[in-house]
Amino acid sequence: MLLSRKELSMVTKDDHEMRNQQEHLQQCCQELRNIDTKCRCPALKMMVTREPELMSQRARSLPRACNIEPTECYF
Results as ranks from 00 to 15, higher is better:
residue 1 M to A: 09
residue 2 L to V: 03
residue 3 L to R: 10
residue 3 L to I: 06
residue 4 S to I: 08
residue 4 S to R: 01
residue 5 R to M: 08
residue 6 K to M: 07
residue 6 K to T: 11
residue 6 K to G: 04
residue 7 E to V: 00
residue 8 L to S: 13
residue 9 S to R: 05
residue 9 S to Q: 10
residue 9 S to P: 00
residue 11 V to G: 04
residue 11 V to H: 03
residue 11 V to P: 01
residue 12 T to Q: 03
residue 12 T to L: 01
residue 12 T to S: 14
residue 12 T to M: 05
residue 12 T to G: 01
residue 14 D to C: 02
residue 14 D to S: 15
residue 16 H to L: 13
residue 16 H to P: 00
residue 17 E to N: 10
residue 17 E to V: 11
residue 17 E to D: 14
residue 18 M to F: 05
residue 18 M to R: 12
residue 19 R to N: 10
residue 19 R to Y: 05
residue 20 N to D: 12
residue 20 N to C: 11
residue 20 N to Q: 14
residue 21 Q to A: 09
residue 21 Q to L: 05
residue 22 Q to T: 10
residue 22 Q to I: 11
residue 22 Q to E: 10
residue 23 E to D: 13
residue 24 H to C: 07
residue 25 L to I: 11
residue 25 L to S: 09
residue 26 Q to E: 15
residue 26 Q to S: 13
residue 26 Q to T: 14
residue 27 Q to D: 12
residue 27 Q to E: 12
residue 27 Q to P: 00
residue 28 C to R: 10
residue 28 C to F: 08
residue 29 C to M: 02
residue 30 Q to A: 11
residue 31 E to I: 02
residue 31 E to Y: 01
residue 31 E to N: 11
residue 31 E to H: 11
residue 32 L to E: 04
residue 32 L to N: 03
residue 33 R to Y: 06
residue 33 R to T: 15
residue 33 R to C: 08
residue 33 R to L: 08
residue 34 N to T: 06
residue 34 N to I: 00
residue 35 I to W: 04
residue 35 I to V: 13
residue 36 D to I: 00
residue 37 T to F: 00
residue 37 T to L: 02
residue 37 T to E: 14
residue 38 K to R: 15
residue 38 K to Q: 12
residue 38 K to I: 14
residue 39 C to R: 13
residue 39 C to Y: 08
residue 39 C to E: 15
residue 40 R to S: 09
residue 41 C to M: 09
residue 41 C to D: 04
residue 41 C to I: 05
residue 42 P to G: 10
residue 42 P to N: 08
residue 42 P to I: 11
residue 43 A to I: 07
residue 43 A to Y: 05
residue 43 A to V: 13
residue 43 A to N: 10
residue 43 A to F: 05
residue 44 L to E: 02
residue 45 K to V: 14
residue 45 K to W: 08
residue 46 M to I: 07
residue 46 M to V: 09
residue 47 M to N: 15
residue 47 M to D: 15
residue 48 V to G: 06
residue 48 V to R: 06
residue 49 T to M: 12
residue 50 R to C: 07
residue 50 R to Q: 14
residue 51 E to D: 15
residue 52 P to F: 01
residue 53 E to G: 01
residue 54 L to S: 15
residue 55 M to R: 11
residue 55 M to Y: 02
residue 56 S to R: 15
residue 56 S to W: 03
residue 57 Q to H: 06
residue 57 Q to N: 10
residue 58 R to E: 07
residue 58 R to H: 11
residue 58 R to G: 15
residue 59 A to V: 05
residue 59 A to C: 05
residue 59 A to G: 04
residue 60 R to V: 02
residue 61 S to M: 11
residue 61 S to T: 06
residue 61 S to I: 02
residue 61 S to V: 03
residue 61 S to Q: 11
residue 62 L to D: 02
residue 62 L to A: 08
residue 63 P to M: 02
residue 64 R to M: 05
residue 64 R to V: 00
residue 65 A to S: 14
residue 65 A to E: 12
residue 66 C to D: 01
residue 66 C to I: 15
residue 66 C to P: 00
residue 66 C to S: 08
residue 66 C to N: 02
residue 66 C to H: 04
residue 68 I to N: 03
residue 68 I to T: 07
residue 68 I to F: 03
residue 69 E to I: 00
residue 69 E to G: 03
residue 69 E to A: 10
residue 70 P to E: 05
residue 71 T to K: 12
residue 71 T to Y: 08
residue 72 E to P: 00
residue 72 E to M: 12
residue 72 E to L: 10
residue 73 C to G: 10
residue 73 C to P: 09
residue 73 C to S: 09
residue 74 Y to C: 10
